[in-house]
């Protein structure tokens, strides 16, 4: 069974970079959303094994999306992938239950680290 991976990011470039950095030799079924609102809806619909979530997004930002996702499923595995590396942003998302924070731009190593930390690979 492929693992379901949901990528939520408003930047098509960032989503492309993330996909390029996914570890090889693993079977993923990918889902994408362009903002937090879409991400939340996709999350409910596909119940992904892991969500890679951006913070700075229009409509609904990643902070709110994370909070809402955790309301839907408190055990949701969410890796925050963000350019917002302020200590207060880190504290906030960890407080909301993110599994970890990966700074942008990601690399094959940092994405693999994140996915292995939550036991997906």
């Amino acid at each position: 069974m492929p693992k379901k991976l949901l990528i939520v990011d408003d930047s098509p470039v960032s989503r492309a970079i993330i996909k390029k950095c996914l570890p090889e030799g693993h079977d993923f079924e990918l889902f994408e959303a362009e903002d937090g609102q879409q991400g939340l809806e996709k999350f409910k619909e596909v119940k992904p094994d892991a969500t890679l979530l951006d913070l700075t997004m229009p409509v609904m930002d990643g902070f709110e999306a994370l909070e809402e996702i955790k309301k839907v499923d408190s055990g949701a595995q969410v890796i925050v992938l963000t350019a917002d590396i302020q200590p207060k942003a880190y504290e906030t998302v960890m407080g909301l239950g993110a599994a970890m924070v990966v700074p942008k731009p990601p690399s094959s190593e940092s994405i693999a680290d994140g996915l292995s930390k939550i036991g997906l690979i």
């Binding site: 098509p12 960032s14 590396i85 302020q86 942008k104």
Partner: peptide, 21 residues
């Protein structure tokens, strides 16, 4: 333009983190 937006997004994230500190 989209690539530059993402590069700027990363760069401005870094800049605001320095000011926030």
């Amino acid at each position: 333009g989209a690539i530059l937006e993402e590069v700027m997004n990363i760069a401005f994230g870094k800049a605001s983190s320095e000011l926030a500190t």
